[in-house]
Design a protein around this nucleic acid. Structure first.
Lengths: 178, 178
DNA sequence: GCGAAGTTTCAGTAATTCCTGAAACTACAA
DNA sequence: TTGTAGTTTCAGGAATTACTGAAACTTCGC
């Protein structure tokens, strides 16, 4: 049996990176994130240097409009930031690479964009049936209340976790749950 | 200012329930779950009695095919179960209504359907670049490893939580994080 | 002000996902 | 075996979401 030698072929790395980008795209899709956005993100978190819009278009074979939109979306999530080099007009991008920070950003944003509106909706629903008489109404109200309370708990846990970026306390607590 | 009296109008309850169904559909959509599936689920968790396919079609104004598919999907998630009453041929459905159990079921299933495949993909990716030389390759590998480790931690935390259905220990821990 | 280099917008199109309705199928009772 | 009450499947259409490419816009140096 021949022992594999460490390779130095740059194509192997490019290939692996391409695979990763594809996979990350698929993973993103499963979590309700659009494929291109996930792929641009994947590209940036595994890039050793800043990337321009044109490089990203080139790498992923996508249009300028598409690249532009998804870069903006990633910036608005806070997952990447744009950098302008001195004396240059072109915009470059870099990703937050720390996995725990990434996770916290995503938690915070999904909480803001999805959990909050859901809470509001449930509260309204609860308020509107609060005064209704009858067993059916009571049961309905109880169920809505249970959901509402649950979301509230989730909200506060998520808030706590997502604020912990630097602290070692929450990662520790999670490890405790392991 | 006139104080609102407790109402007894059954239309008010129907209306509120309808709103809830709509809202739950929207919430589901944000989480990558199809609208109809979320609505059928909403209908069932707020129903005082078993519902048949026909009643669901009627309530949501959807086709038989659509109702059928989404009921099957919900059953395969374990969020609802089908019940056949003695002496009747028709199938009826009821939902798991306990919010914590619902949450655990969803965690378990998403772990199985989404987290697991992601882990596999990352492992492969890591393996394929393990032997590569050079600073770029090393950095890439490190990043993939970080993601992979993170998913592993997430996996074990989720496993622990989702197995806790009955126990009060994990809810307690979560409250501790509050 | 003008041209160059870059960013942003958006109408039209492509791709994907979801839904319908009808036909095929299954199980059972008479 | 035939009729009835129900479930399942699936081809085609509708709705939604994503992408392209080109034109409009912005910024800056000369």
């Amino acid at each position: 049996m021949k022992k594999a030698q460490p390779e130095n072929d740059p194509r192997a790395l490019l290939q692996a990176r391409d695979d990763f980008v594809t996979q990350w795209g698929t993973i993103g899709t499963a979590w309700g994130i659009n494929r291109t956005m996930a792929q641009v993100h994947a590209l940036l978190i595994t890039s050793a240097h800043l990337l321009s819009t044109d490089e990203i278009m080139e790498d992923l074979k996508i249009s300028r409009g598409n690249a532009h939109k998804n870069l903006r979306d990633l910036v608005s999530w806070g997952l990447i930031r744009s950098v302008v080099r001195k004396g240059e007009r072109k915009e470059y991008f870099e990703a937050e690479k720390d996995v725990w920070k990434m996770f916290c950003i995503i938690l915070r944003e999904r909480r803001r964009r999805e959990l909050r509106p859901a809470q509001t909706a449930l509260h309204e629903c609860a308020a509107r049936t609060k005064g209704l008489k009858g067993a059916e109404a009571a049961a309905f109200n109880k169920q809505i209340k249970a959901l509402s309370d649950f979301l509230e708990l989730a909200d506060s846990v998520i808030t706590k976790i997502s604020r912990s970026e630097q602290s070692t306390m929450v990662p520790w607590a999670l490890r405790f749950l392991k």
